[in-house]
């Protein structure tokens, strides 16, 4: 797995797509910071709108940038998606999987390696995002007061966000392994969170649905105060989705004719 991680990192750093993705992410974040505005894709809850509105009335120091822009972290879906395509998608669309699988790598090892590498890349992207907005905000308006509470909250928020983003991409992974189609996986990645968001707004009495509204959960991770029960359900929905999708993806891949 370590060999695969080294190889994939090598490939990623030599891909124009990677640098274009990072530059686009920096541009979007910079525009938000310079204009002190936050946007969300596909609509969100009232709480989210209120949080964003409140943040537009304060000075965006580095710390404030992190707080405010945590509510548009779901934009990372679009900045992790290209990395997903480069790490897993191309393997299938270009049949590059044939080389390692035909020369002694087990399908389980390949599957786990690819997913873990993608997970690490996603985590790095989340870290890079927060690091950039903190530094950019800091250089613009000062860094603000970094308290222990803020750091703990940031760690909790980013962990939940990574979990929710991973749940979205676990569904993409399942679609990719089922259909071997990058386009289908990309469309699913974009549409699934939007569809769930719409369903949550339509079926307001189905409270369990909101735990699967991963995009909204990403954006509201910082300011939402969950009870331990709600947190358990949130984690259960996230981890459950990841595990179910990955198990199904591997089962379809395990004995598949390639």
């Amino acid at each position: 797995m370590l060999n695969m991680a080294r190889a994939d990192t090598y490939r990623l750093f030599r891909s124009k797509g990677f640098y274009i993705t990072q530059i686009l992410m920096i541009i979007v974040a910079t525009i938000s910071i310079l204009t002190s505005t936050i946007g969300i894709i596909g609509g969100g809850s009232d709480a989210l709108s209120n949080f964003q509105a409140a943040n537009q009335r304060v000075v965006w120091t580095g710390v404030q940038c992190v707080k405010a822009m945590s509510s548009e972290t779901s934009a990372l879906i679009y900045f992790i998606l290209p990395l997903f395509i480069m790490t897993i998608g191309f393997e299938f669309s270009r049949q590059i999987y044939k080389n390692p699988l035909s020369s002694g790598m087990t399908r389980l090892n390949y599957f786990i390696s690819k997913y873990v590498i993608f997970l690490l890349i996603s985590a790095c992207q989340v870290i890079f995002y927060y690091l950039f907005i903190f530094l950019a905000g800091g250089f613009k308006n000062g860094f603000g007061k970094i308290t222990g509470h803020f750091l703990v909250k940031l760690l909790q928020t980013s962990s939940i966000q990574l979990l929710e983003l991973s749940a979205i991409f676990a569904i993409s992974t399942l679609v990719m392994y089922l259909f071997f189609s990058t386009i289908t996986a990309v469309v699913t990645t974009i549409l699934f969170p939007l569809i769930i968001t719409v369903l949550v707004q339509i079926f307001t009495k189905q409270h369990w649905l909101k735990y699967f509204s991963f995009q909204n959960n990403v954006d509201s991770a910082y300011f939402t105060h969950c009870t331990s029960g709600q947190m358990s359900q949130l984690l259960l929905a996230g981890f459950g989705t990841i595990i179910v999708c990955l198990v199904l993806a591997f089962l379809s891949f395990r004995k598949r004719d390639l």
Binding site: N3, M4, R6, R11, R14, K16, F90, P100
Partner: peptide, 19 residues
Amino acid sequence: VANDQLTAQQNLTYYCKIK
């Protein structure tokens, strides 16, 4: 099959790392 965006040498480096 190999990685489209890599040169011959880079592709071999990639597979050396995997193997």
